[in-house]
Design a binder for these strands. Structure first.
Lengths: 225, 225
DNA sequence: ACAAAAGTGTTGAGAGTACACCCATGC
DNA sequence: GCATGGGTGTACTCTCAACACTTTTGT
């Protein structure tokens, strides 16, 4: 039996693009130009091209919507409930990306009437099952933040410890203790001082950078030995 | 632009089915009857049907290959490298399932010349990119084992602590300390005594069962607070 | 001098790890 | 009575969480 004897779905990639902006966790959404859900907000995405891998397709979408090339990108989950797209049988491979805010200026692609950042904590109504996808992406981001060093992907190259802590707080949605935070992050040896300082309203703050040679993952606590 | 204007891939599900047998971690493979890779071993799978979700397709495959219905099933990853299937453009959504050995008798489905368990530590050459998929599934299984209670999905309803420890050892590929193992698992309060004993060659062993109300997940140690 | 943000240590509790011997049964 | 696997406790180290004051700068 040949491939053509089986019905084939359309397959898209959707890319949840996170950033930090104004002490808020934001996600890039596009306003749909065409039906279905014309005028509604949606996660940017598009059809996979033959001859490209799903990851390449996700990188292409990311480039089209943000212009950025070299960012953290990870496959999230594949959604394929029948009926999730009123046009027909459409399966989507969802990705999530982390971009530092200052590197990006959202651009509306061909199919979008607009593109802008939305706070993850104040989202508009969303097309398709995109609210589910975002909820899952947030859960996964929080989870990864706890046991890997992905947080740095959202920050500029240099940052202060207070800025880093604020980033963690806004993503996790909880306050953290300053002394414990500093002790733990410094003992993890994933950042180093740059020797520079950031001048501000109070005492100048040491600037740090991520150590690219750092081990990004810590062993999880085992439920069983 | 309509859905039909875009090229569509074939989409399959592949289900990595793990079990424990003879103190070994095993995976169910089928021997392919048809080209490509006729006569080679492969992960069981098949095309998704229109009107079913990927998860339903995975459950259907699982039923066809093993007859079991009610088992642990989790989406693993979606593989879509161009060229991974010589017949053309085929994307596969990989799942992994955990089944207790005694509940299953492998059956060769229509497209298979044979089906049998293989040790994860002594695999035959595999069709397509299935070696990659298995390697990733093993990594994920080990990872989940460390911070959730999925291990019980591989054991019969009642078991001794020694059997449980042996299961963990064969999956993780390392020896564990008996006293620490027992202390930790009992303090996690995920199992309870049945009151029965298993008679064997030495002192009879207490039988335990999994507590279905138990919390299956433990907080991971945070890299950062 | 005062406002604003940066920076800094200690203590008590719980978890992880390493380690060796006695117990209950079948033969 | 002995072989076989089941079952048990302690001491040390490390990590976690809670908690408040001093330092450095700009105005």
């Amino acid at each position: 039996m040949a491939l053509e004897d089986y019905p084939r779905p359309s397959v898209t990639v959707d890319v949840v693009i996170f950033t930090l902006q104004d002490d808020d966790l934001r996600v890039l959404l596009i306003k749909r130009k065409h039906p279905p859900f014309a005028g509604m907000w949606a996660i940017p995405g598009g059809f996979i091209d033959m001859h490209e891998s799903p990851e390449e397709a996700a990188l292409r979408e990311l480039r089209e919507e943000t212009g950025v090339e070299d960012v953290y990108l990870e496959q999230l989950y594949t959604f394929g409930e029948p009926g999730r797209d009123p046009r027909g049988w459409v399966i989507t491979i969802a990705y999530f990306a982390l971009v530092p805010a200052h590197t990006v200026r959202p651009r509306a692609g061909d199919d979008a009437a607009a593109a802008r950042w939305w706070s993850m904590y104040a989202l508009p109504p969303l097309a398709f099952d995109h609210a589910d996808i975002l909820a899952y992406a947030l859960q996964r981001l929080r989870y990864k933040l706890e046991y890997t060093a992905v947080g740095f992907e959202l920050l500029p190259e240099v940052f202060t410890l207070s800025e880093l802590q604020a980033a963690y707080e806004v993503i996790l949605g909880e306050k953290l203790d300053k002394r414990n935070f500093r002790r733990k992050i410094l003992s993890a040896e994933v950042i180093e001082e740059t020797g520079q300082y950031r001048m501000g309203e109070g005492r100048p703050a040491k600037l740090y950078r991520f150590r690219p040679d750092a081990v990004a993952e810590v062993k999880a606590r085992r439920l069983f030995p």
